[in-house]
Amino acid sequence: MLNKPCTVDMKVCLKSLHLINPTVLTSGVLGVSYSLMKRVEEAGAGAITTKTITKEPREGYWNPVFVDLGYGYVNAIGLRNPGVDVFREEIRRAKKIIRIPIIGSVGGRDLDEFVYVAEEMLEAGCDSLELNLSCPHVSGYGGDIGSDVELTSKIIKEVKSISEKPVSAKLSASHAKKNFIEKYIDAGIDIIAAINTLRAMVVNIDSMTPVLSNIVGGLSGPCIRPIALAVIYDIHREFPDIPLIGVGGVEDWMSAVEMILVGASAVGIGSAIAKKGLSIFKEIVKGLEKYMEEKGFRSVKDLTGYIHRN
């Protein structure tokens, strides 16, 4: 344990991506317009991930699209987005007024779509790209791509060849395996974000029907945190040099600490906003800072993966 420092350095680096603190707005939540992204910056986030953007506009699914179960949330928005041609204007506008990094979440059904969207997002000014390889409820996208390790490696390689900015892969718990990640690292991936929501459904026994219009969706919230922790723990143990964004059930500073202790350099904040609103960013940063002060850590980097070293 280090001597107690007077100040704690909250800055983190994910390769060349510099964050003022380790909180990142996760994809799918609020990152749909420049004004919402500005609010997230003002709320104290370290970086913003946009909603996943595809080449063509997608209307998404009919309501209900989001169910709050108390112990977690199940959503099936259906990658609703205006398409990259419209969204790049949103990024351009955001870049004029937002100083924290904007990570563009890229969706696609095939190599061409990923490359097309990635190119447009970079041109619009994204500071980094996140490849959505894990959305669990849209056929042909996300997890369907992520399950094909050869295709995914090819996508990473191609996107890396056009991007000077760091590229991350958003993985599902089931695809965050050693043999997959080895290939992604060979293909040049810079950062790994894990986990995405887990395929799930909600059944109402009074109506005797599924609740979501799409029947299945993705489970997020505190109930998936133990799963996310194990995934981040495993990846950091095998690949300690790759920066990780720990996502899944982070709802307060304590859960952020857990994520960092097992190996995350930054933590994703998503559906917890439903419960706590945007004040969650400052709450986490403040709590984490105090914790590090009390425990005698000078920087988030020193805390990252602590469990593995002790």
């Binding site: 609020l30 749909v32 309501n63 989001f66 959503n75 928005i77 439903a274």
Partner: peptide
Amino acid sequence: KCGQGVCGT
């Protein structure tokens, strides 16, 4: 859409 301030619609 979501009704709970997360989707941004």
